[in-house]
Write a protein that binds this DNA or RNA. Structure first.
Lengths: 259, 259
DNA sequence: AAGTGGTCTAGACCACTCT
DNA sequence: GAGTGGTCTAGACCACTTT
């Protein structure tokens, strides 16, 4: 059993917070390393002489901070943080497309990991109001909808849905499950829609329950909601992509103009 | 008292999760709008015939999801989400500097809100190993350290620490609390350090307790850790800025090269 | 079988807000 | 003072993992 600080009854700080503080210090100081098991609830009850509900409250704090994960029947463990995956500013560069790689696969393969895609579905359907507006399409216009989930070393890290105007993508390889080498951007360019710029906007937030299930997220892990719009050289938006990233798996990199 | 679904004893789902599900539906469906008060714990105990601890567990779920905030003595309320503040891709553009505005103030003022800065401190100190490395300075080199907190309409939304090589910034307006019109980037350019590019990297994560206090974050709100390095035209890094953003207050916008 | 966390009960007392 | 959430106790039974 690791060393833990005594309670300070004069501090006025709630007992469960003091217990959480002690455990947090043990984790951040490295006394409890990544993957280490915390003292069991019973041990903490004994150590501090409190009710079990109180030590559970302490552990719940650490769980929502993303510091620990409980495993039923096994114990509570310091969370192992996945290696951060770079999403680099040049990930949609033409050189990757010309190398025949889609952006995600190029990125992951470069880091020596296994990437895969599942839950792939491709349909054609009328655009929702919000999608039509952002693609600058008339209400109810048909769009090709490509939905998929990305995995690294077998673990889901990202799910994405792309919408493309059906008058561009319909009947092409883009409407097929496998769009071919270089991904849909390579096909768009072959179809004469040279990409001019990509605009991304991001928000960080806590996941909704659906996203927790989809990405198999432990408690205390936020997501990044990312919306990308690809514009062709004529200024027309040719793709809208809505992505949800597991927040603990990515570092996003961008370049900003100084001019 | 709003309508809430009955428990389903055959579902196998924990009672507190079922209660949370019902309340979450009421919130996401709009039945309980932004700022609305939830039924009190006592009312929920009565409604569901469970122990108080059980309804508190349900409410705790919603709190960690960032959906509700409890106010001691008043009730539990649907969280009012602050208006998302755009951090646009051009926020460091020279036109803003030439207009005499720093990036943050330009951004906020454009949206018709009040911005302010507090907890401003400027010191000169030896760089830590990590700072020296990223600024490509020898170990222990002196850096000007500018630390500050940004507020919008009086509420903290961002805290930031900038590090600049003392051989560039020492003894200049950059080492003063008020660096003058256009901010430190305007001063850097006047000193002959034309900015070439800015590189930003971002991660989303749950805040540590210090950050919760600094930014007055309610539970269930992640932060974005943002690191920016500004490079001069000669390729030299001239500023490292480490920023923590309240995740629920910002949407970040970037442009990506398609080439 | 023993040990772990997951769920739930039925209380108690406290601190805060509102009227 | 009445109503609200915040903290804490002392149990109980269950489900899962390990030996």
């Amino acid at each position: 059993m690791i060393a833990l600080p005594d309670l300070d009854p004069r501090s006025g700080r709630a007992v469960f917070r003091q217990i959480a503080d002690g455990l947090r210090d043990a984790i951040t100081s490295g006394q409890l390393g990544s993957g280490a098991r915390l003292p069991s609830e019973a041990e903490l009850v004994e150590r501090y002489g409190t009710a079990r509900a109180t030590v559970r409250q302490a552990l719940a704090i650490l769980a929502t901070e993303g510091l620990v994960v409980a495993e039923h029947g096994r114990g509570v463990f310091v969370r192992v943080r996945p290696a951060l995956r770079r999403l680099a500013a040049d990930r949609f560069s033409r050189k990757h497309r010309e190398a025949g790689l889609s952006a995600f696969i190029a990125e992951v393969t470069a880091s020596g990991h296994e990437s895969s895609v599942d839950r792939l579905s491709v349909t054609t359907a009328p655009a929702s109001e919000s999608v039509a507006e952002r693609l600058e399409l008339p209400a109810g216009a048909q769009v090709v909808v490509r939905s998929r989930r990305y995995l690294v070393d077998g673990r889901p890290v990202q799910s994405a849905v792309s919408y493309l105007p059906a008058d561009i993508a319909g009947g092409t390889a883009i409407a097929e499950p496998d769009p071919g080498p270089g991904g849909i951007y390579a096909r768009l360019e072959e179809l004469g829609h040279q990409l001019e710029r990509l605009s991304e906007s991001l928000v960080a937030r806590m996941p909704v329950p659906d996203e927790v299930a989809d990405l198999e997220l432990p408690p205390g892990v936020p997501v990044v909601g990312l919306v990308r719009i690809a514009y062709a050289t004529n200024g027309r938006p040719v793709e809208l992509c809505e992505t949800v990233l597991a927040g603990d798996s990515f570092v996003l990199e961008y370049e900003l103009p100084a001019r």
